[in-house]
Design a protein around this nucleic acid. Sequence first.
DNA 1: GTCAATACTTTGTCATGACAAACTGACTTG
DNA 2: CAAGTCAGTTTGTCATGACAAAGTATTGAC
Lengths: 250, 250
Amino acid sequence: MTSDLTPVRPVHLDRSSPVPLYYQVATRLQELIEKGEIGVGARIENEVDLAERLGVSRPTTRRAIQYLVERGMLVRKRGVGTQVVHPKVRRPVELSSLYDDLVAGDRAPRTEVLDLRVIPASDSIAASLSLEAGSSVTWIERLRFAGGEPLALMHNAIPLDVLEVTAADLAAHGLYELLRRAGHVPRIATQVIGARSATAAEARILEEKRGASLLTMTRTAWDTTGRALEYGSHLYRASRYSFELNLSAG
Amino acid sequence: MTSDLTPVRPVHLDRSSPVPLYYQVATRLQELIEKGEIGVGARIENEVDLAERLGVSRPTTRRAIQYLVERGMLVRKRGVGTQVVHPKVRRPVELSSLYDDLVAGDRAPRTEVLDLRVIPASDSIAASLSLEAGSSVTWIERLRFAGGEPLALMHNAIPLDVLEVTAADLAAHGLYELLRRAGHVPRIATQVIGARSATAAEARILEEKRGASLLTMTRTAWDTTGRALEYGSHLYRASRYSFELNLSAG
DNA sequence: GTCAATACTTTGTCATGACAAACTGACTTG
DNA sequence: CAAGTCAGTTTGTCATGACAAAGTATTGAC
């Protein structure tokens, strides 16, 4: 079992760039692996040699490799070396919005804003968002279409000082996109995914039969500083949608 | 706004221990935060001072803090400092088994093995496990109870050389526990979570009404070396179970 | 008194050097 | 010939030192 040791050749690092060196190295390695120039199962150069050839220190090389290890592309074994185990990055779990997913999947999303107003938060919503009971929140109700068919009925509550939106904004953009644009980057979220049967009203809106199975998802998202950005309670047509997750345990 | 700078005092590090220093430091910090001795919002000592007081180098201190940052407890800001944002570790996503979850939740799990035999893998299962079509796999069908009630109907396929199990093993232990015991540690998995209505047979087994909503979950799990360990296709009673996920985007 | 420039604090990046631990493979020895 | 030993390879951990970048607080000028 001779595993071919793949030499990574042409690498130009830009020391004047604001992009950290370790990140430049990691990106370069990632490209080589994604393109298949370093195949699955192949061993990459050892840290010391790689560092020397690239003209960077070993810690920098280590950090670059570590970055790809955490993403599931590489595996390291002491005394053995570093091996490619997967040709693509596996993100731990995408903290993206449904809208982004649909755009990425070419499924022509469309959003209909059913309701948009400012209301005092219910106790449970206030608790989820770490607000005082009765604080004002923006309440949003949207119907999301994909490929011309209704896909999800979405309810959101957003603290007033986090975001100001218009129905037009919501019709044209995903909620997470608007949040990001306002400088609020969601970083941590807790989700609960369940299922239940549609009520008559829900079935009518989603064009399902009464009693059809729906996926439910409630989520609270925070930014890096621990500030709650969004509470969501959504209903998806189980016949048209499912959640895909990539998990990695460390 | 004077944020109290919390000094972390008594720390004994064991330099002769095989446990890395950075991990000892991280664990100690984590304890202090979980116990509430360093409250949410409080700033911790800066890296340089902390390193000096603990008698370790700054990189070691940095690595310990970084570890907790990745787990969502701490937030760092250049020029500002490091702050506690959450009093508990938020695991990215638990790659645990249902059995472990139930045990942890004191819900008295019980397992009934409905089927256990070796069969040639179907094309789709072989593809999921990266096996050649027709390879033999162990096929397992289990009914999982919690609190005396049926909770999930579980189907698994496992490559023959990964695990040998008896019905008695499966009745007494979770599948992931058995895998780990055999030296196969699941590290990466992809899951798809959906929903559908129960068939008559499924409803009968799970003691639900016909047409009741069920949660579906299919999963493939790999170890660190990229070897496929397990394929699972499970059905959960939506009235009794939901998935809880903690996400963090980097 | 207000605003801009400056000094200070704190984390981010990078280099160099050293030793330890785990795995591999070849060699030695019985 | 088989099994244990030992050397070599490669990653893991840790220390020291230095400078850069970002944010905060102070100071000074108008």
